[in-house]
Design a protein around this nucleic acid. Structure first.
Length: 585
DNA sequence: GCCGTTTTCGGCCCGACTGTTTTCAGTCG
């Protein structure tokens, strides 16, 4: 049973306990444990074996550790089963509807015998809910709208789409309303791989005008709520967007508060309480009798400074040790977009890219890069117009022409080479040796079992001309699960062999993801942040890969393509292969 | 159920909004 499945069970237990009306802190404990497991880079079984038990995890005590062990050993948890015998799993779907929490759901099951979303929909349509305590006609309408929305957009939005939407909203707000400071908060600011909704914070001396403009935006398909300082819309793409207008002296406090994550804020407040300090969205205060003394709130720095902490970058705010690190002065100096010196994974129209080599080179130069590697597909990728050895060598002439045409940027001759089922590569070694840079990727045989896939990738890495493994888990967010692979073994081999791991910046990939990047670093692996761009305009996607790298606590020194070209060349795997002509041990 | 630079017992983040009420519970972020 993998971490995601374990976390799912723990999280369900938490919700079931809430519906049962148990001690709310008990439910929270399960929720916290679920997050701890979900955020592990290693398998829970490995943690059990290596760290002397699961209680090593934060928020996991004796009781929850036993339940996780039961899940690992039997694939089931008897406590979970018992709870589900009392409360059917279909009830949990109702809880996902906005406006319905554990209390109301409990009442619906007990008083009306409603156990499914379908039954709930029927009851709402028939007007049978309005007589219940705390409910009315409006509640019925909200429930029906919520059900319709849930059916249409069950998934979270990918980071790229949400980013575009937020930019668009902010540009239009600036044009049509007296906006002073403005920022997107929430999971978007933390660069999470998927986004639930967009949170925008604004300061203005005319909040009413800002609200008016916001709910009147062309892309607002529905106005969910409209208040004097807070409103919510659903945009044309089905993404919910919230706006809040704050007084300037509270902007930093609100930004901190609404950036989250929820768990980061809970832990931060807990830390604050011990210091007799209170945080809320209006500021930070010293608790003194009846009158609290205000310590700040205009900037986020003031919020953290009042606790004696340096500013914690948004991407780290997941309650994964960042508060402790801040306290001890060991926050990482995170890699920034400006550190990236070149893109090492882009395609041209020689394979399945849209633009010519020269166009890609110019775009890379305009992006401020000092080098770019053209990595077209290898011959097995016939659907992607992969290059035969002959065409690969022919392409060299065009690369040389582009080098002459575009000055001020180094053009590396590269390839994205398929890793075949047996772990061999799609070009012979002597061809690979002619290139400046090789990224090796799995593009076929997804269903291979874990052991075989792990061996396949490690075999590929043993080829001395492989510099980097591309999108190492093969996932497509919301579309395709990652293939089964033992990343721990892959990273260990990569560290030993000196092969880099890619962090693909494409919002549909983001592969490696945050926690895996962090684990790779811990095991001594270097990363390459690249876009896999298939057109010039996609070079800007690098911001998402950098976001993922930052979420993985990576510094510029962990990222090979933050190096200037001469140093990069020395650090690439092939530098060693070229000298010794032999494989590493 | 978890946890301890106030604690092995007694706490566990905090405020706004909504819809329903007529002083507030539930939900949300």
């Amino acid at each position: 049973m993998d971490n995601a499945q374990i976390a799912e069970v723990l999280s369900e237990i938490a919700v079931l306990l809430e519906i049962k009306g148990e001690n709310p802190f008990k439910g929270r404990s399960y929720e916290r444990a679920a997050e701890a497991v979900a955020n592990l880079a290693q398998g829970a079984d490995q943690v059990r074996a290596e760290k002397g038990g699961l209680q090593a995890l934060p928020g996991v005590g004796k009781s929850i550790a036993k339940k996780i062990e039961e899940l690992l050993d039997t694939g089931k948890c008897s406590y979970h089963q018992e709870l589900l015998a009392e409360i059917p799993a279909t009830v949990l779907d109702m809880l996902r509807l906005p406006g319905l929490g554990p209390k109301k759901v409990k009442m619906l099951t007990e008083r009306e015998g409603i156990f499914t979303v379908e039954q709930l929909e029927k009851a709402a349509r028939a007007g049978r809910l309005r007589h219940l305590p705390g409910m009315g006609e409006k509640t019925e309408q909200d429930i029906l709208r919520g059900i319709a929305h849930m059916r249409e957009y069950s998934k979270r939005t990918d980071l790229g789409l949400a980013w575009e939407m937020a930019e668009s909203i902010m540009v239009q707000l600036r044009q049509g309303a007296p906006v002073e400071e403005m920022a997107a908060a929430g999971s978007l600011r933390r660069m999470k791989e998927t986004i639930g909704d967009i949170d925008i914070l604004v300061t203005s001396d005319d909040p009413e005008a800002v609200m008016e403009r916001f709910v009147g935006l062309d892309l607002a398909r529905e106005v969910v709520a409209r208040g004097p300082t807070k409103s919510t819309i659903v945009t044309a793409a089905g993404i919910q967007a919230d706006i809040r207008v704050m007084p300037p002296e509270s902007f930093g406090a609100a930004l901190q508060y609404f950036t989250g994550s929820k768990q980061h804020n809970v832990t931060l407040r807990d830390f604050a309480v011990r210091k007799k300090i209170k945080l809320n969205e209006y500021g930070v205060f010293r608790v003194e009798g009846d009158e609290d003394a205000r310590l700040g709130g205009r900037t986020e720095e003031e919020m953290y400074a009042a606790l004696g902490l340096p500013l914690i970058p948004p991407e780290l705010r997941e309650d994964l040790g960042e508060i402790e690190a801040a306290r001890e002065g060991r926050l990482p100096d995170l890699v920034e977009a400006g550190d990236i010196a070149g893109d090492l994974h882009v395609h041209s129209d020689w394979s399945d890219g849209h633009d010519t080599i020269e166009e890609m080179a110019r775009a890379a130069k305009d992006a401020g890069y000092r080098y770019v590697a053209i990595t077209d597909h290898s011959r097995s990728q016939t659907v992607a117009n992969g290059l035969t050895v002959e065409r690969l060598r022919e392409r060299r002439k065009e690369i040389e022409a582009a080098r002459k045409a575009v000055s001020g940027i180094a053009l590396l001759e590269g390839a994205e080479v398929d890793i075949k089922r047996d772990g061999s590569l799609d070009y012979p070694d002597e061809v690979l040796a002619e290139l400046d840079f090789v990224v090796a990727s799995v593009h076929s045989g997804w269903k291979t079992d874990r052991e075989a896939m792990t061996a396949r990738i490690i075999t590929a890495m043993e080829n001395p001309w492989v510099d980097c493994i591309g999108h190492p888990t093969g996932r497509l967010i919301g579309q395709r699960e990652p293939y089964e692979v033992d990343l721990e073994a892959v990273f260990t081999a990569a560290a030993r062999l000196g092969v880099a791991m890619e962090i693909s910046s494409d919002p549909s990939r983001l592969d490696l993801k945050d926690i895996h990047g962090r684990r790779a670093k811990e095991l001594g692996v270097k990363l390459i942040v690249a876009t896999d761009a298939h057109r010039a305009g996609s070079l800007s996607l690098i911001r998402f890969g950098v976001g993922m790298a930052r979420r993985g606590w990576l510094e510029a020194g962990d990222v090979l393509n933050a190096l200037p070209l001469a140093k990069l060349r020395k650090r690439l795997r092939r530098a060693g292969a070229g000298r010794s002509g032999a494989k590493d041990e």
